[in-house]
Amino acid sequence: MKTKYILAISGNDIFSGGGLYADLATYTTHHLHGFVAVTCLTAMTDKGFEVFATDSSVFSQQLKSLKDVPFSGIKLGLLPNVEIAELALAFVKEHADIPIVLDPVLVCKENHDVEVSVLRDELLKFLPYATIITPNLVEAELLSQKSIQTLEDMKAVAKELHELGAKNVVIKGGNRFSQTVAVDVFYDGQDFHVLENPVLNHNNIGAGCTFASSIASQLLLGHPVLEAVQFSKNFVYQAILHSDQYGVKQYYDKT
């Protein structure tokens, strides 16, 4: 079978559980050749977990270096500033005919005071080009400027994000509404699908990155969007089940 190439536009996680590490591990699990354009570095400092954006000229050169690679899919993760977002958007526009998955990271989980909400307007520009977006609850609230307190709120915000341009939306509810069931909502402009899995008391670093990268991989392999989301929900469940102290252990689907 001809090798397929997939790009992650994402950041470095110093603990190697999320970001580009989760992306590449997921691509490898799907037997795809993964590339990365690195948007930022991270480190623990005396201020806590910090994000250091890649110099925009360096990031631009990364994308130019990849211009001749025949990508079949792109997944976008942490875009740390407006300059990086604008360069990434220009690249996405040049590849609008392939699956594009946007994980709109607006909050660093390790430090909820670090909000990059200034990027909201920039991220909204990606929506018409994204095959699917995968915000968590906080990110969905920031994008929509609406509060989410119930499952019905999740559905209403998913619909609003679709109306803002996203072709498909999956909002990751996690365990906000239940300590036993992780609930996500998928919306394709016509139907809502509520996806549930048991909450696991395991390390879940990189779960969101893995979820988005798995969806991108499944789309690249030709699966319908809902099927890709359902598969990826279970894929992440298994990854968390097999996680260790720092991140996700390699997990291969034997089916």
Rank of each mutant, 00 (worst) to 15 (best):
76 L>N: 00
69 V>S: 04
50 E>S: 13
39 T>D: 11
64 K>R: 11
74 I>N: 08
86 E>D: 13
65 S>T: 15
44 M>A: 12
80 P>D: 07
43 A>S: 15
88 A>E: 10
73 G>E: 05
66 L>Y: 09
55 D>H: 08
75 K>M: 04
47 K>T: 15
62 Q>E: 00
57 S>C: 04
71 F>P: 11
37 A>Y: 01
68 D>H: 05
67 K>H: 09
70 P>D: 13
85 A>H: 01
86 E>S: 07
45 T>D: 08
64 K>M: 01
62 Q>H: 00
75 K>C: 08
82 V>R: 10
50 E>H: 05
82 V>T: 15
56 S>T: 08
51 V>K: 07
84 I>K: 05
47 K>D: 15
44 M>H: 05
73 G>S: 12
76 L>V: 11
76 L>A: 12
76 L>C: 14
78 L>W: 04
43 A>L: 13
52 F>C: 10
73 G>P: 04
86 E>Y: 03
79 L>R: 03
45 T>C: 14
59 F>C: 07
88 A>P: 09
54 T>W: 05
64 K>W: 03
70 P>M: 03
50 E>Q: 15
48 G>N: 05
45 T>M: 06
54 T>M: 14
74 I>F: 11
80 P>M: 09
40 C>N: 15
82 V>L: 07
55 D>N: 15
40 C>K: 11
86 E>K: 13
40 C>V: 07
45 T>E: 13
68 D>L: 02
56 S>I: 15
43 A>F: 13
69 V>Q: 02
41 L>N: 15
48 G>T: 00
78 L>T: 05
60 S>C: 13
87 L>I: 09
63 L>D: 02
78 L>N: 00
85 A>P: 10
67 K>M: 14
68 D>T: 13
83 E>W: 02
58 V>P: 08
44 M>S: 09
77 G>Y: 08
50 E>D: 14
50 E>T: 10
50 E>I: 11
51 V>C: 14
63 L>N: 01
58 V>L: 15
65 S>F: 05
85 A>L: 01
46 D>V: 09
78 L>K: 02
66 L>D: 09
55 D>W: 10
